[in-house]
Design a binder for these strands. Structure first.
Length: 127
DNA sequence: GTTGTGACATCGC
DNA sequence: CGCGATGCCACAA
């Protein structure tokens, strides 16, 4: 289901995808995290946005292009949704070095921290 | 106008 | 760690 809502759903989605593409290999980001990182539309209430933003991110993921590693986007529980192919994605993540515990990943270790342009080179170096 | 649902989040047991 | 209950927003029937 496409939760149209942001003023520009397409643009919103693009922003989400762009963010997802920034996720380095071996790291994962949560819907809530992404939602918080994204700029609230129209200056909507931060609280409300926080409540539903995650779903908008989910909506964006539903239409994510092939060049978007959506598998790195998981819920706050550190799990992948029950969507078809999820298990396969889990395997991909494992190959990237992410350890799964009971279908859950250790966000403490693999949780992707926000992305700062200035911090970007640092991350590459770290890898 | 009311009801149900959705790739979610958070708190509590 | 696992499961359940509640809140949130927008949309379709």
């Amino acid at each position: 289901m496409q939760f149209t809502s942001p003023p520009n759903p397409q643009e919103f989605n693009q922003r989400v995808w762009a963010l997802v593409r920034q996720v380095p290999r071996g790291k994962v980001a949560t819907y809530g995290q992404i939602a918080l990182m994204l700029p609230p539309p129209n200056g909507a209430d931060f609280e409300s946005y926080k409540a539903f933003g995650a779903r908008w991110v989910g909506g964006a993921m539903a239409a994510c292009p092939d060049d978007v590693p959506w598998q790195r986007v998981i819920n706050s529980q550190g799990k992948i949704s029950e969507r078809p192919g999820a298990q396969k994605q889990r395997q991909l993540l494992e190959e990237e070095g992410i350890i799964f515990m009971k279908d859950k990943v250790d966000l403490k270790k693999y949780g992707w921290r926000g992305l700062d342009e200035a911090d970007k080179p640092k991350q590459e170096k770290l890898f």
